[in-house]
Amino acid sequence: MHKFANPTFFMKIANGIFPWATGISILCFAVGLPLALIISPPDYQQGDTVRIMYVHVPAAWMGLMVYGVMAASSAVFLIWRHTIAHLVARASAPIGAVFTALCLVTGMLWGEPMWGTWWVWDARLTSMLILFFLYLGYIALGDSFEDQERGDKAAALLALVGSVNLPIVHFSVEWWNTLHQPAIFGLKGFSVNAAMLQPLLLMVAAFQFYYIAVLVIRLRAELLSAKIRTARFNLAAAE
C-alpha cells in the first residue's frame, strides 16, 4: 500500500489515468449538456428552472466529495507523513472551493424564482457556506507560515477538523426543518424522473472526471514547485 506514497510511482499512475479522465469528462459534457439544456423536459412545478439542478447538484456533491478526499489525504499525511498525500489535498482545495461556490450561486439562482428568496439561513445553506469558508481557510493557512512544514501540518489539521461539517451538510435536511428540500437520493432510490436523471448523472460523471483530470495537472505543478524549492535550496547551499 505504501508504495503509492512514492511520488514517482504515484505520478506514473496519475499520468496514465489523465488522458482517460479528460476524455470521459469531455464525452460526458458533450452528451450531458444537450440533454440538460435542450432534450430533457421541464418540471411539472419548477418549469425550466429544473435545468439549474444539472449544475447545482453535481457541484454540491463534488464540493462535499473533494473535501472528503482532502480530509482523508490530510489524515494520511499527518499519520504517515507521506508528502504526496499532502500535495493531493493541497491540489484539491481550489477545485473543491470552486465547486462549492458554484453550488451556492446556482442554488441562489434557483431559490429566487422558486422559493421567493435568494438566501435563507437554514441548516443546509448555512453549513454549505461554512464548507466554502473551510476551503478558503485551508488555502489561506497553507501559505501563511514562514516555516513550510508547519504550514503544511496546520492546513492538514484544519482539513481534518473541518470534516465534522460533512455529515452536517449531508444530514441537515433530515435532522432539522429546513427550507431546502431533502436529498434526491435516498434509501428508496432516486425521486427524480428518468428523463431528468439521465442528464443529472451524466453531469455528475462529467464533473467527477473533470476533477480527476485537473487534479493531475495541479499535482504536476505542485511536484515541480517542490523540486524547484529543493533545487533553490541546494543552489543556495552550494554558494
Binding site: G47, D48, R51, L102, V105, W110, E112
Partner: peptide, 18 residues
C-alpha cells in the same frame, strides 16, 4: 426558458466560467 432565462443561463454561464 419559459420566462426563467435570467436564472437558467447565468447558472450555466457561471458554471462554464468556474
Amino acid at each position: 426558458m419559459g420566462g426563467y432565462a435570467a436564472f437558467v443561463w447565468p447558472a450555466y454561464g457561471l458554471g462554464l466560467i468556474g
